[in-house]
Design a protein around this nucleic acid. Structure first.
Lengths: 206, 206
DNA sequence: GTCACTTTGTGCCTGTCTTCACAAAGTCGT
DNA sequence: ACGACTTTGTGAAGACAGGCACAAAGTGAC
């Protein structure tokens, strides 16, 4: 379920505040959902709550982490060392939450060998090796739109079956591969849409 | 509708290929949706298709752009000049799609004045001015999680009503303000979840 | 002018996701 | 040990999005 990471985040925050137990109501509001939804989601994981009391923060956090598969670590490779790729390579947010960036890759031999954020850029030809030897499981595509499908194919051929795509294109992949696309321009366009609706509403009833 | 930006992207690609007319089937597959859904979505905008022929690419692109409010420009400010903020400041993707980054802001006076990607960092205290004088409408939050709510409040108080949030927190805002949150770790956790499901499925039926 | 063909727009149905509301279950004070 | 209170877990109802399938509408050939 796509909301579990949100719950885990809220639980981690509570745990670091020293809270031991939390009700569905409190946790739901911290995660920005309704309490009924939270309870239903959690009930799918099993019954980890105690009626009349609530949920044990640490216990629930472990259960969710286990459900998400966060007990093992998931090596990540970033493909495409343009602007966005370099930014992602320098971003510490991945490591902070347990995702180890084990390789920076680029197709262009002129970029290969360059050192970015302390890591030497390698060739995309090394991908099969990374999957085989280092257990690489997640690929991040930060190439320009033109190169995204090719980068994706290379990842998939090497055995990667989870892809996080930042390029503004629709990627075609086999059924067993999961792609999640994050497109910053799309997000801004949706915000522009709301901005315009607001402006129109204001013009009608100022 | 959240799919309009995807349609617009596909149409722009078609237009640059010189295509003049497109059927719902073709456009749907380019945008990665079903043709029935595409037609239903477009029918909400009005009847811009011709039965037996399809849609005029340029015409439809203009209509969608107008619906999204992309006929005017939407000035953007980025708040928080940490790792992620600097990366976003250097990212050209915004400008390429018509969103002008007019200001880089930080709360910390030691960062103010620094020049990043050719722009001088200003203080968040300048926000009311930016809204008033430059028509700032969209704020991007790239602060650490602890500072995100404060940054958001500052934006809202200054009159910004569309916020793109990269911090992994749930922001509380008045009803008229729209927040879209993009959390890279959440995306990776969802991928980890799928990765684990795949591994489990394989263990059961190898 | 008519007919065969293509493709849109849309009413209906189906499955999923959300919310409501309450019974079951456990705690704490006396 | 009992009873009042709190909070979970869940069945049933409701809302909503997506897909199917077909009638309406337009094109182009003859």
């Amino acid at each position: 379920m796509a909301r579990l990471p949100g719950y885990l985040r809220a639980l981690t925050a509570l745990a670091s505040d020293g809270t031991l137990s939390v009700s569905s109501e409190e946790l739901a509001s911290a995660a920005g959902v309704s309490s009924a939804m939270l309870r239903k989601d959690l009930s799918h994981l099993g019954s980890y709550g105690v009626r009349g009391v609530g949920y044990d923060v640490d216990r629930l956090a472990s259960e969710i982490a286990a459900a998400l598969g966060l007990t093992q670590d998931w090596p990540v490779a970033i493909v495409g060392m343009g602007n966005l790729g370099r930014a992602l390579a320098a971003y510490r947010g991945f490591a902070e939450r347990g995702f180890r960036v084990i390789a920076l890759l680029d197709r262009d031999e002129r970029v290969v060998g360059e050192v970015i954020a302390g890591t030497r850029v390698r060739s995309t030809a090394d991908l099969p090796d990374l999957v085989e030897r280092d257990g690489l499981a997640i690929g991040v595509i930060a190439t320009p739109p033109e190169g995204a499908q090719e980068a994706c194919d290379t990842l998939v051929d090497a055995g990667v079956r989870s892809v996080l795509n930042f390029a503004p294109v629709v990627l075609t992949v086999p059924d067993e591969v999961v792609v999640r696309t994050v497109d910053l321009s799309t997000e801004l366009q949706i915000l522009a849409f709301h901005g315009q609706r607001l402006a129109v509403a204001e013009a009608v009833a100022p």
